[in-house]
Design a protein around this nucleic acid. Sequence first.
DNA 1: CCCTTTTACGCAAACCTTTGCATTAGCTAT
DNA 2: ATAGCTAATGCAAAGGTTTGCGTAAAAGGG
Lengths: 352, 352
Amino acid sequence: MQKHKPTTIIDIAKALNVSPSTVSRALHDHPSISAETKRNVHELAKKFNYQPNLLALSLLNKKTGIIGIVVPEITGYFFATIINGVQDMVASAGYKLLICQSNESFEEEKKLIHEMTLLRVDGFLISPTFNTKTFDHFEKLKSAGIPLVIFDRDCPGFQADKVLVDSYHGAYQAVDYLVKAGCRHVAHIAGPIAIPTFKQRLDGYLDALQDNGLSINDSLIVYSSGFSSECGIDALTQLLDQNETLDGIFSVNDAVAIGAMHIIRERGLRIPQDISMVGFDDESYSCFFNPSLSSVWQPVYEVGMLSAKILLDHFSNSEQAEGYRYEVLKPELVIRSSSASPNPLDIPRVHL
Amino acid sequence: MQKHKPTTIIDIAKALNVSPSTVSRALHDHPSISAETKRNVHELAKKFNYQPNLLALSLLNKKTGIIGIVVPEITGYFFATIINGVQDMVASAGYKLLICQSNESFEEEKKLIHEMTLLRVDGFLISPTFNTKTFDHFEKLKSAGIPLVIFDRDCPGFQADKVLVDSYHGAYQAVDYLVKAGCRHVAHIAGPIAIPTFKQRLDGYLDALQDNGLSINDSLIVYSSGFSSECGIDALTQLLDQNETLDGIFSVNDAVAIGAMHIIRERGLRIPQDISMVGFDDESYSCFFNPSLSSVWQPVYEVGMLSAKILLDHFSNSEQAEGYRYEVLKPELVIRSSSASPNPLDIPRVHL
DNA sequence: CCCTTTTACGCAAACCTTTGCATTAGCTAT
DNA sequence: ATAGCTAATGCAAAGGTTTGCGTAAAAGGG
């Protein structure tokens, strides 16, 4: 494995006894280069397998063509699909994507952003950690003139372009549906309400109950310590041990819902006859559970596409339109068989 | 959003009336710089918020500190977890990761590798497309002296460092278990056998049957057109429509198995009483199905860690040990309740 | 007081490419 | 013949950093 150093424009220039500038111009088909020189250059470039050094170019142009994306995790349908949306959008504009995971660590997030700044990425797409309460590291980007778009998770008080999903609306739909389907004692497995997204889901739950004339029972709200199925197990164990009357559950996400369903079955209860269940996220496997899990679908791919689009707009229209974009996409309730039908005569509409 | 250009070492030099070299040395704590100068430089660097330009450095050192990883997809537990393993390993060595998806497209794979070469990534981790039959683009990397490690999917005939999982062994275990549990008519939902991984799973299936003295029934082998749950639905519909006797299924992966289980239930058959099921991959949700899905777990995270480690070794020991590393990791059968217990008295061991 | 070290720093090259501004030669038009 | 033009190319700077080597001044030794 002989390590040739890559051919440069200078190598070609020497071999042809011309200057590097001539070679550069020939390769770019500059009009003031003779046809013969061009031919020679192209020929030699092919022969030596010349590849332009993008580093040198980036240094010169002060742009790398790389977009940095920071997500809390890539495992899981949600962020992976957002990344797909981003990828597809930026690739079509000739940009490359540098993907990093913060693993929900604020320190990691700061470090990653810093490192990517050193690499001179042209812009950022960021979905902040749940532990991101201060935004100095984002402000730094703004004052350095590096465009950024926040997606999926809001940063209250921080001004920037944002692409979010209307969690409140999704939650409201889900709970409203449960109530209209006959549930009178709907519980909520909530996420940490310090986080806007989960506060919104809780609010949607509360408002939907109240708008339907149901009173709120605080002991039907249980807070999950995390977002894995194991947390769902814990949450539901806690809930059932309270012995409250209970005929419906709105879960903060599908993974948790699945853990919860496991416990429901284990206690000999039936879904949806005894307890209806609605999740959030519409994971790819949710429709294959038994019973298939009703869930709130989010336009994840679109979030990715739109975020990327907004970022790309910064590159082309440098004349920064005043103000920041604030886009809120609508989720959609997908009804399957884990929740009772509103009209007992209806057969549940099963989505695959 | 005023776009300051970033401070350079030259700005500091001018402000202090010294040469850039002095600033550089001061920042690197070079011994031949006076304590006072160092103090001044550091002070000003902090004040101006100086950030070294990694592009210039990369250009100089001919290394970027970036590792390129090309995977067929990032959606899904398998590759996402491998990436986690890689990430953790390379981060500890100070490398950054450029993640790209080929979407199982050979052309895309070639294009991505080419582009990443232009960006001068220091090395590659590649899991080839199912459509990658020729390896010229890999050979190019080798002859350019760029180290690469192939993982998860083998490239027959191409010499390189490889980290693979022993699919044959996993499949053999699964089918051997099904037979010992009493299944006499074990079907296999196979992947495309043009791909070594799936050929191995098929071979494991065949050998396990024969070693147990069972004959092979070709109509019990059905080929799935893909790897999603929808494909499992198709495959099993086809299988059941043949009306063959059938009491066990070994599926090419969990997603397909889940689609298959859906159909089994729909036809009024019971799992595992009528048909036992074992999948492959041990997805994170598999243990929450009803019944929970037995599966072959693969050491995914370890594949990532080891692949990255081997690549990193190339950077430190440039004195290339002769020959290529060829690592084959062992998968492990995880028995849950979708498969009958070997001894009817045993209660199935349920893994969470 | 002079020679030798040491201390502290500057110069310039190297990494690779692009591009505005010469520069050269050959031609045309006057 | 000569100014003016065009065609084809070269020069050099710029982008930011590191580093071997050279050098000045100060310090030390005899």
